[in-house]
């Protein structure tokens, strides 16, 4: 009896998990399928599966725009912003985890609260700053914005990882004569590698997919793949297949990265709750 019940339970849970998984995955699947259609077939849902498949959309996208340049920008922006964010976040998280003050908890909450503000609220001032300092459509400018954007999450994640590291080990390094910089570089960072790796991965993905600021602040030179996708959406004419092809090309690299880094990512997303 109990055995049957537990098997049934398992079946229900499994079916539920698959349903949720498919619902989440469906848009991506549909995008990929659409990208292999002609523009006419793409919008014809009724005969979607009975018509033929083609890579026509990809050749059009290839010939019309320079995928490599957009992809390069995406890589540079994602890696650059994550790298600089880590350089700032590691010492910050160290201070909060190992030398907390009275207001450390409040500070952490406050940092997180900046993520609750809709970004559009800061659009005008940031746009004006960018315009006046000549930062529009520059990689440096976008890297700075993306870095600031993700900094609170990075600091939070690192903070929770660092909390798991026994403070005595850092104290031992202080007794051994390590300066603060060396303590961070030779002792804390190597011990926190798993945590730092998942933080890094998650933030590369966040930066890669960030569309609001990259669309608002870039046009050509610093434009990442989000612009590449957006350039195929137009107010008129048939563009679904081309848009889908562009999207598929844009998400492919990050999808592959995510696939290989699944384990790290799960650990990262649970914020150190699972050991």
């Amino acid at each position: 009896m109990a055995r049957n019940a537990s098997i049934r339970r398992k079946l229900v849970v499994t079916a539920f998990a698959w349903t949720v998984g498919l619902v989440i995955f469906f848009p991506i699947l549909w995008t990929v399928l659409t990208s292999f259609k002609t523009e006419g077939d793409a919008i014809n849902i009724a005969s979607f599966f009975s018509t033929g498949w083609t890579t026509e959309a990809y050749s059009v996208v290839q010939s019309r725009s320079n995928y490599v340049q957009f992809a390069m920008n995406s890589v540079i922006l994602a890696l650059g912003s994550t790298f600089f964010a880590l350089v700032i976040a590691i010492p910050s998280a160290w201070a909060m985890a190992f030398a907390p003050g009275k207001r450390t908890k409040d500070l952490l909450m406050w940092m997180l609260s900046t993520k609750m503000m809709p970004p559009v609220g800061a659009l005008i001032p940031i746009y004006l700053i960018f315009r006046d300092f000549g930062l529009l459509d520059t990689r440096g400018g976008i890297i700075t914005v993306l870095m600031l954007l993700n900094l609170p999450i990075i600091i939070w994640m690192l903070y929770t990882y660092f909390k798991e590291i026994p403070g005595e080990i850092l104290e031992a390094s202080r007794m051994d004569g390590a300066s603060l910089g060396k303590e961070l570089l030779y002792v804390l960072t190597p011990m926190a590698i798993p945590g730092i790796a998942s933080t890094l991965l998650l933030n590369i993905i966040l930066a890669w997919n960030e569309a609001f600021w990259t669309l608002a602040l870039t046009t050509k030179d610093a434009a990442p793949l989000t612009q590449f996708i957006a350039s195929y959406s137009s107010p008129e004419g048939l563009f679904w297949a081309k848009l889908s092809a562009a999207s598929t090309m844009a998400i492919a690299p990050i999808l592959v990265l995510g696939w290989f880094a699944q384990k790290q990512l799960v650990r990262g997303l649970t914020f150190g709750a699972v050991k």
Partner: peptide
């Protein structure tokens, strides 16, 4: 580190 003292911790605190 400037005090010329070494410490052995209860938890060993090895790297």
């Amino acid at each position: 580190s400037k005090r010329g003292l070494s410490m052995v911790f209860q938890s060993y605190a090895l790297y």
